[in-house]
């Protein structure tokens, strides 16, 4: 038996809106420790992982682990019927073929689950989520890829298009900066990665979920773009960097 109740449907709506461009169908794996989701985009270049902690819900009951395969567009369509401050309840019985209230069909999705190490990145930048979103959107009008370079001074975004180049440098702020404006850098060594902008732009759909975004980078590893939610834990996006052939 699974029972989840959230008094702010808006939060779940925001979570769904932030992932449904990237992934069409996904398994919500619910356990006593929380609801998690891990899914790759259709081209298998990007991936997301999401954790919704039990204490983020007003009521959370999960008697045994259950994996609910859902079509995210359908789920979003149903949740659109709820106002942001409405209460949403998700029940799934052990038959596992529907969630009641919404009577939405569940799907059987075979997906590969990957073990993702959390630590050991060469550079970790925290910056305002809205600033990162604006940079990605602006650069997306110019080029297809962006080179993100982190040094101890700051983070640089460089793109090249058919007709012009663009270069944005965000300097690390002082420790006294206000949280919503702060840019902090933890770095072992400078890192520079080239990434497809359309995926980064898709990740920034999660901007309404958090004030700050954490960008973790290492040479030769997927970049991690993490949004930490106030009450629900996190959503992380992974993207494989482009390499010169």
């Amino acid at each position: 038996m699974l029972e989840l109740r959230l008094t702010r449907a808006g939060l779940l709506k925001k979570v769904l809106e932030s992932i449904r461009d990237l992934v069409t169908d996904a398994n919500f794996d619910c356990a006593a420790t929380g609801c998690s989701l891990q899914a790759m985009d259709s081209s298998r270049v990007a991936m997301l992982s999401l954790l919704l902690r039990p204490d983020g819900f007003e009521h959370y009951r999960c008697d045994r682990n259950i994996s609910m395969g859902m079509n995210l567009a359908n789920m979003a369509r149903m949740l659109r019927c709820a106002s942001d401050d409405d209460t949403v309840t998700i029940n799934a019985d052990d038959a596992q073929d529907k969630i009641s209230d919404y009577e939405m069909k569940l799907m059987h999705i075979t997906s590969e689950n990957l073990e993702i190490p959390e630590a050991g990145y060469e550079a970790i930048v925290k910056m305002p989520a809205s600033l990162f979103a604006r940079i990605c959107k602006d650069l997306g009008t110019i080029g297809d890829t962006v080179m993100i370079s982190v040094t101890k001074e700051g983070i640089q975004f460089f793109t090249r298009g058919d007709i012009r180049t663009a270069n944005i440098f965000c300097r690390k702020t002082t420790p006294v900066a206000k949280e919503k404006e702060a840019i902090s850098i933890e770095m072992e060594k400078p890192v520079s990665l080239t990434l497809a902008l359309r995926y980064l732009i898709s990740f920034t759909k999660a901007t309404p979920l958090a004030k700050q975004v954490t960008i973790s980078m290492s040479y030769g590893r997927p970049i991690v773009v993490e949004y930490k939610m106030e009450i629900m834990d996190h959503i992380r996006f992974y993207l494989v960097p482009k390499v010169e052939e």
Binding site: M40, S43, R44, V45, A46, M47, E112, N113, L114, E115, I116, P117, T145, T194, A196, R221, P222, Y238, L239, V240, K242, V243, E244, E245
Partner: peptide, 14 residues
């Protein structure tokens, strides 16, 4: 020319 690899190359299966 730039090459794009798939993400599962970078992580082990659970």
């Amino acid at each position: 020319k730039q090459k794009q690899q798939v993400i599962s190359r970078f992580f082990a299966s659970k």
